[in-house]
Design a protein around this nucleic acid. Sequence first.
DNA 1: GAGGATGGTTTGCATTTCCAACTATCTTCA
DNA 2: TGAAGATAGTTGGAAATGCAAACCATCCTC
Lengths: 150, 150
Amino acid sequence: MTVADDVMDALVRTTFEVAGVLTRIGGEHDLSLTQLRVLGILSDRRLRVTDLAAYLGLDKSTMSTLIARAERRGLLARGKNPDDGRVVEVYMTPAGIELTERVKDDIRRALTPATGRLDPQQLGQLANLLDVVSARPSRAHAEPGPTAAR
Amino acid sequence: MTVADDVMDALVRTTFEVAGVLTRIGGEHDLSLTQLRVLGILSDRRLRVTDLAAYLGLDKSTMSTLIARAERRGLLARGKNPDDGRVVEVYMTPAGIELTERVKDDIRRALTPATGRLDPQQLGQLANLLDVVSARPSRAHAEPGPTAAR
DNA sequence: GAGGATGGTTTGCATTTCCAACTATCTTCA
DNA sequence: TGAAGATAGTTGGAAATGCAAACCATCCTC
C-alpha cells in the first residue's frame, strides 16, 4: 500500500524530471521529445513507418509528417522495400547519426549530477530494478525463480 | 562508465514508458501531460502563475492559456493576491480535486502491473534510489529497521 | 482478376508551446 | 513625489504535434 504508492510517486516524479531534461536538451538541438525518441530508436535499426508508429504509440499520419520534417532537415531518409512496394523504410542519415551522438552525450552529461549521487553498487541496483519495471529482461540475471504469483 | 550508461538507458526507457502511461490515462480524462502535472502540483499548494511556469519550465504565456482552459473547464480558479495587485494565484476547485483523485487512482492502477513485478523489499529500494536520483530527501533516510543489504 | 486488406500520405482541426507586444501594478531613486 | 524601470499576466501570431478521415498505391485472396 504505502510502499507501492511511494514507488509510484517516485516513478512519476523521476519521469517528469528526466522528461524535463530530455525536453531541454532536445530543444537545444531543435528536437522534440518524440523526435529524440525516434532518433534513439533508429540509431540501431531501420524500421517501416507503421512499426515506428506502433512502437511510439502514435498514428501513422503523425509518424508520416514527423518523418517528413526530419527528412527535410536531413536527419532521416526513406527507402523502398524491394519485397513490398507499399512499405517505406526509415533510417538515419550520417547527419542524423552524428546529431544523435551529440545529443546522447549531452543527455549523459545532463543526467550525471543526478546519477552521480549514487555509488556504483546502487547504480547497478537501480538499473536492474528499472529493467524489471520497464519489462526488460534483467541485464544481470539476478532474478532467479519463477515470477511471483500475483 | 558502463554502469552509469546502463542506468541512464534504463532511466530514459522507463521515463518514456511511464510518460506513455500518463499520457494515455490523462487522455482518457481529456488532460495533457502538462495539465496532469499542474493538477498534481496544485493538489497541495496554491501558486502564482509565474511560479507554476518556473516549476514546469514553461513560458508564462503558456501557463496563462493552460490555466485559462482548465479554468473554463472548472478545474482551477484564479484569485487575487491582496498584497500585490499584479499577482494571480491559482488553486484547484473541488471539481479539480475530485478529478485529480480519480486520475491518481487510475495511474496507480495502470502502473501496478509494472511495479507488481517487484517484491516489497525491492519496491522500497527502488523508491529510495529514485528519491536520491530526483534529489528528494530520502524517505527512509538511515534505512532503519530490518533492511537487508543488497 | 475483382474485391478487400494493408501501408503511407494528405488534409483539416484542436492543442501545445514559444516569442513579442501589451496592460496593469509595483519599486526605485533623483 | 513622481517619472522610469521592473515585474506579473494576458493576448496574438506562428510553428510543431497529434488525431481522424479521405485518399492512393500495392499486395493478397478466392
